[in-house]
Design a protein around this nucleic acid. Sequence first.
DNA 1: GATAATTATGGAAACGTTTCAATTTCATCT
DNA 2: AGATGAAATTGAAACGTTTCCATAATTATC
Lengths: 360, 360
Amino acid sequence: MVSATWHEQRHCVDKGTGVTKGLDKKATIRDVARVSGVSVGTVSRSLNAPDTVKPDTLGKVRAAIQSLGFTPDFRAQNMRRRNTMTVGFVIDDIANPWHASCFKAVDAEMREKGFSLYLVSTNGRASEEAAAIDMLQHGRADGVIMTLNNEQDARTIKRLKELKIPGVLLDRDIPLDIDAVLTEHATGLRQATNYLIELGHRRIAIITAGSDIRPGRERVRGFVEAFERAGLPVPRDLIRSQSLSADYGFREATTLLQMPERPTAIIAAGNRILVGVLRAMQQQGVSVPNDISLIACDRSDVAMLYPGPITLIDRPVEDIGRTAAQLLLERLDGKGDRAVQRIAFPTHLIMGGSCLPVRK
Amino acid sequence: MVSATWHEQRHCVDKGTGVTKGLDKKATIRDVARVSGVSVGTVSRSLNAPDTVKPDTLGKVRAAIQSLGFTPDFRAQNMRRRNTMTVGFVIDDIANPWHASCFKAVDAEMREKGFSLYLVSTNGRASEEAAAIDMLQHGRADGVIMTLNNEQDARTIKRLKELKIPGVLLDRDIPLDIDAVLTEHATGLRQATNYLIELGHRRIAIITAGSDIRPGRERVRGFVEAFERAGLPVPRDLIRSQSLSADYGFREATTLLQMPERPTAIIAAGNRILVGVLRAMQQQGVSVPNDISLIACDRSDVAMLYPGPITLIDRPVEDIGRTAAQLLLERLDGKGDRAVQRIAFPTHLIMGGSCLPVRK
DNA sequence: GATAATTATGGAAACGTTTCAATTTCATCT
DNA sequence: AGATGAAATTGAAACGTTTCCATAATTATC
């Protein structure tokens, strides 16, 4: 470890104004008023509604602002305006590339309107989630976009019921009057499963989230439907739906691969699950697509690269993020209370090279 | 697209207090004072310094707080205390898994102390970076942790010189009195390069950032040093140092692979660069490690999985993030101004299966 | 039981904005 | 020129806390 010090002077902003202030305290709107010889109210209006102040006066005020290097204090604005121009983005893990992309989309949309984003990464702990919502709604944020860990957690539900600020749910479904942006997972899974069935697969496994969150329920539903519509028995023993984590993916893939009559295809329905599944396959020396077919969910570096692009169920992250931001902005602009909206986006199958017809 | 509406009533919090207020406005400290029959000051102290108030009084106050469902308003606290309990985390792209991990480490450390984090993803645009610093320092955050896009950008430098809040640089080196947490990239690259040299490689390429940021400079330095120490000529034509992007990695890898006397090993020194390099290799049908050896930088899903684990130069993200947070916290606690610190963390080589001795 | 020392409380003044009613200024119309 | 109304400005009151200083209540000391 190296530690060093520069002996530069911290540069002290020269206000460059006739009015010399002893301290280098930040200039306030009052200082601007004094220097420009107008009232505080006028300075405020010069800032917030320049068209309501005489050009002449405006000039003086701007000059004073310039010379004092004045910038309004956000804290005071927040206090007085009773807002924060800040929005919370609550997820379980920002290291999940899908969440990261979604954040970027939301951020782009919101920042353009002058909002900043709090990022809260809850690590899947319901207590942190509840704490985050609490802190956000008590004057830290004007709105919140959330991907909850669990749709049944009592603490979280309670907070959502009494939520004091507008909120948007991402990929979660709770019977409360909260806007939501969803994905048509069921359709996606049905298509993907059907594709495998048409390739001759019957022993198809699915690994995905539990029924405590919508993606888990819907994906399993779509999976089951595909078999039913094809008039085939559903391979119930190959449905593993409990968690989205990489570890879960690894564990379940490992046991699946060790089954006496092992699956000929696996649907790794979840970003992190895929990572676990691939690790398990490597460990057991099973290769895609020769030994087994594989379908993933959502684009990611791994999905696009491993050993070649994996066939996957894609969905429009940017659209989803942008839509969530827009729903929130509508509420924040406060133009009349519109009805609660739930918008669902379709998925589509992107063909990679990870599926082969089942060997006869 | 589906859109639906629930017609539930938004549940209105029942204050459950004797003092009925017409509106459901949020209770203030004043209400608490009134209900509990003490002064506003006492309520405040009950909250912030409970040991200075008589247990008896404390009881009454707590009861009132409970019955009113009072929570202090952050905006007012920020205004009065002149802080925000918020810290900015500025990076170019949160979808870069290294940044995401680093964020998590910082977040864990800061949240424990009661701070929240603003995440600003600048998309590599210097103007957004400058704007972010501006907004953060004018009352939106108490401190800032940054990984700048460029160490020479005039706008950014100017702001850093006059920075009003404590800051910590991550992996960037600017001669100003700002704390910094660095990585010993040069040593890491020297070791990695040397490892390849010992395997018999001579035509070794490196793709990494430009000399406008420290990692670029240091990595190239280490690379060059390895050859010099081995008494070998430096393959200047194989040094590509201009950007950390995946696209750059792809472009440079593509041209490198098409050289008449193509390199026998590539060091993809950057998270995103690796993704581009692998894409190029796939496209050209070049396989690792048989056709070419490969070394990466930093753990990532891709690096750990592609077709097997890639040999890589690792560094302790958690430690780095935690240290950055701690440096910032020291300044925020305001316990005396200590000298500027620059702490550098060592790297180490993790052996994967992506390097083979050069073919005779 | 009186006085001094200590500890708790009350009241009011901040903090830096925005906003609103009241006032002043200015241009226009008769 | 005086009346009228519109436009621009002022001054003060919020917003909900914290943090003083002064006072009141309690405890300790003799």
